[in-house]
């Protein structure tokens, strides 16, 4: 009697794991990278004294923070095509991560900026510096130090949450795990490997954050 169920993982499966890992890394690098970049501007707007800047930024942040990542993914993937926008599956994943990261990170940026006291603004402005110069040379370097722990925490969280993108059948790490489990029923081994691969992505980030934080602390 022919055996239809594969009873061990083989080299092809290993390649599939690597492909999933690569796709997850690509999703996160681009999505979270762009999201962090956008967050810088949204956070600056949110911390602004101008209402016409801080109010829309606040609205953007709240709308995204207070809705589930999964719904955002569905909206991008299923709703945008209804408006005539054909969104490729990878782009939908990247866009969702980007939007989500930008909102949460913007709040971290805002908190970082506001952690720098008014005395620093007084001193810098008293020396003739304008807003961009104060931000670039005085506020941001100090805010950055405050932003690292929650910022890295957020990035790690979102790397793991990128597994949700498996529901639109993008071949990222979690989707690979599902496919291989269906094929082999070796759910313990397969998801064990998937979990380990997420760990390998996140742990160095944790360590890096700790290292950078310590390095920056030298200045007191």
């Amino acid at each position: 009697m022919p055996q239809y169920v594969q009873d061990s993982l083989n080299l092809y499966d290993a390649v599939l794991f690597l492909q999933g890992l690569g796709n997850t890394v690509a999703l996160c690098l681009i999505g979270l990278g762009l999201g962090t970049l956008i967050a810088l501007f949204v956070g600056l707007a949110r911390a602004s004294h101008f209402r016409w800047l801080s109010w829309p930024a606040g609205l953007y942040i709240e709308v995204i923070r207070d809705s589930p990542l999964l719904m955002q993914l569905y909206l991008v993937f299923f709703a945008l095509p209804l408006l005539g926008l054909d969104v490729p599956i990878f782009v939908a994943g990247v866009a969702t991560l980007m939007v989500n990261a930008s909102a949460f990170m913007a709040e971290i940026v805002r908190a970082g900026i506001q952690s720098v006291g008014r005395d620093q603004w007084d001193a810098a402005r008293g020396l003739g510096m304008g807003y961009p110069q104060v931000m670039r040379w005085v506020v941001m370097p100090q805010a950055f130090r405050v932003m690292i722990p929650p910022g890295v925490g957020l990035l790690i969280g979102l790397i793991k949450d990128s597994s949700i993108i498996s529901v639109i059948s993008y071949l990222e790490l979690t989707r690979v795990g599902q496919i291989l489990t269906e094929k082999t029923f070796l759910s313990f081994q397969v998801f064990g490997i998937v979990a380990a691969l997420y760990f390998i992505m996140c742990y160095p980030l944790s360590r890096l954050a700790l290292y950078v934080e310590r390095r920056l602390k030298v200045g007191g």
Partner: peptide
């Protein structure tokens, strides 16, 4: 402002420099 120096009670140095 660049022509007028001001020194504060609480020093207000930039702590990261």
């Amino acid at each position: 402002r660049a022509e007028v120096g001001i020194v504060f009670q609480s020093f207000n140095l930039f702590p990261h420099l």
